[in-house]
Nucleic acid binder design. Sequence first.
RNA 1: GCAGCUGUAGCUCAUUUGGUUAGAGCGUCGGAUUGUGGCUCCGAAGGUCAGUGGUUCGAGUCCACUCAGCUGUA
Length: 401
Amino acid sequence: MDSETVANGAITKPKDSPVVPGEFTFTVSKTDGRARTGEIRMPRGVIRTPAFMPVGTAATVKAMYPEQVKALGADVVLGNTYHLMLRPGAERVARLGGLHAFMNWPYPILTDSGGFQVMSLAGLRKIDETGVRFQSHIDGSRHVLTPERSIEIQGLLGSDIQMQLDECVKLPAEERVVEKAMYLSLRWAERCRVAFGEQPGKAMFGIVQGGTVDRLRIESARELVGLSLKGYAIGGLAVGEPQSDMLRTLDTVGPYLPTEKPRYLMGVGTPDDIVQSVRRGVDMFDCVMPTRAGRHGLAYTRFGRVNLRNARHAEALEPLDPQSSCVASSTYSRAYLHHLVRANEILGMMLLTWNNLAYYQELMAGLRKAISDGRLDDHIAEVKDCWARGEAQLAKNQSAS
RNA sequence: GCAGCUGUAGCUCAUUUGGUUAGAGCGUCGGAUUGUGGCUCCGAAGGUCAGUGGUUCGAGUCCACUCAGCUGUA
């Protein structure tokens, strides 16, 4: 564990992170098959890729101190247009000095455009060429989000990597629905690019859509690349389709994306999803899995998943992972975590979120090193073997008790 | 002591004038969760309807007694 984070049991003030003026750049230092490792540089810092970005929707990575998130090795967090525009409001965040100062995270921030949340959260929503009309899930108030307004909001927040507004379709869906959403997203990408203009040191990413239809994905990627953006996201995956469909879609899209630009697979995923996607050349990920699962009592570890709600942990004195450098993983007994989760105690959420993010960052660091060393496939085999052995052990303990 | 009320799943309660296999919420035991609602969803286990006896073709339901709890009263 980074001593900075736990010195004297207190969260310490982070060292100032002076903003270094400069361009937004991506350099690949090593490849292994289709996988690559490298760095995205921008004034607020460096993102080591492949990267996992903890999700900090409402200007907080839930149940974590920002200082902890950084100490775990996260170089960038995700913030959210939809949530922040509703509460506390983009203009207010701007008046308060921007999102970085507001949430005490001086490092890079990527913001989602709000398209996905409108699909997954908002009530009554209407999508047309101009944008999205929706009702807030908080108070029912009515709002309009256009591509231009989404970029404006992300600018007010001070986001370093801004996402185009897109329409994300839940799968399975009819092909014509997916196609319509893909073309609308393309037109919105162009409007977002114009609205974003030229902003040194910052980037706007486009989002490839098209469901699991190869023809649509290829068309989407081709058109987007024509806009020569600074990075390309693959959206609309892990939204209900089997993993095999997702991986096949990555295989399809990969060749159409420029190798010198970062690739971001949005909303993914489980450790296995991430490992498989890194092999296919993805550089960036974000997912609520480690944080949400943590709040619900599920731990991700080197030895697979552990559901701490389960009665079998009630008197288990061993920690989640005695070898881990993370305090939450190596010091607290499963019995204690079980109790905290059952009692719905805040500390339970904090410790499990901490453990999960630690594991995710450890997973990414391992993948980066393996790519550097040119032994990614061997490394992945080891990682998966460890999950399998852990879960077999858990099953054995269960049948024994 | 007397009178009244109450007794159904671990808990809080349903169960139309007696009528198929007594239900719900919470809890318990599992599972799901992928560009975050600490939200939510799915499945399972769990009952001698306080007990005994009676009336009836048929009783959680009606009657008697016993037990337990609550309230009032001398």
